[in-house]
C-alpha cells in the first residue's frame, strides 16, 4: 500500500465516523485526490482494501461523480459555470477567455500542471452570474477583463491557499448574496477545502 501511515490513520478515523465502512468511500476518495490530484489506480486499491470491496466497485463509485478526477489535475482547477443563469449572463465569454488564457479545452491540464480547465454545471452562484470556482472557491460577478486578471494573478503569484473572499474582492463583482464575513481560510490543492481532508488552510 502506498498511502503513508498518516494518511492511513486519517482514513481509519474517517471510516469510524460512519455506521458502515462503505459510507466512507466518498470522503476517502476526496482524501486520495488531495494526495495526487486525481484518483490513481493505486489509491483505488488502497480504498478497496480499507473498506473491503473490490477495486472495480470503488472505481464504479469514483467515476460516477464528476469531482473525482480520473486524470491528474493542475494546481488550480478552474471551473467555469455554464448553467442557465450563467448561460444567459454570458458565461460563454468567460469560458472563452479562460480557454484562451490557458490554451486548454474542456477537462485538459496544461504542461506545467498549473491549470486544469472545465466548464461545469451550476455551482450555486446564480445570483452572481457569471461565476466560476478556483479549487471550489467561488468568485462571482465576473467580467472578461477581471477573469483574465484573475488568471494572470494565479499564474504569477501561485498562491498556495485559495481564498474566495480574496478573489472576490480583487476580481469579482455582483454577489449572490452578501457574504458579510471576511474569511481568511481557503483551499489547498484542487479539491474541496475541508478539515477532514486536511485541505483547508488559514492564510498566514
Amino acid at each position: 500500500m502506498s498511502w503513508n501511515d498518516s494518511m492511513i490513520k486519517q482514513a481509519k478515523k474517517i471510516i469510524k465516523m460512519y455506521p458502515q465502512k462503505r459510507s466512507a468511500i466518498g470522503p476517502l476518495l476526496h482524501l486520495a485526490q488531495s494526495k495526487d490530484g486525481y484518483i490513481s489506480d493505486d489509491s483505488t486499491a488502497v480504498i478497496s482494501e480499507l473498506v473491503g470491496i473490490t477495486e472495480v466497485q470503488v472505481k464504479s463509485v469514483s467515476t460516477f461523480y464528476s469531482m473525482y478526477k480520473q486524470e491528474p489535475t493542475g494546481k488550480y482547477l478552474l471551473s467555469v459555470c455554464k448553467s442557465i443563469s450563467c448561460e444567459i449572463n454570458n458565461s460563454k465569454e468567460i469560458i472563452d477567455v479562460v480557454k484562451d488564457f490557458t490554451g486548454l479545452n474542456n477537462n485538459e491540464t496544461d504542461e506545467n500542471d498549473l491549470f486544469t480547465f472545465e466548464a461545469v454545471e451550476c455551482i450555486g452562484a446564480c445570483g452572481g452570474a457569471p461565476a466560476m470556482q478556483i479549487n471550489y472557491e467561488t468568485v462571482e460577478g465576473l467580467s472578461s477583463e477581471n477573469t483574465i486578471k484573475l488568471c494572470e494573478w494565479l499564474k504569477k503569484e501561485q498562491p498556495d491557499v485559495i481564498i474566495a473572499e480574496e478573489m472576490q474582492d480583487n476580481f469579482g463583482g455582483t454577489k449572490s448574496f452578501d457574504w458579510a464575513i471576511k474569511d481568511q481560510s481557503g483551499t489547498t490543492g484542487s479539491v474541496p477545502g475541508f478539515q477532514t481532508f486536511n485541505t483547508t488552510k488559514e492564510k498566514k
Binding site: 470491496i53 473490490t54 472495480v56 466497485q57 472505481k59 464504479s60 467515476t63 460516477f64 461523480y65
Partner: peptide, 10 residues
Amino acid sequence: GDPLIEFIQR
C-alpha cells in the same frame, strides 16, 4: 459474490 464487473462512469 465476486463483483469484478461493474458500471463505470454515469
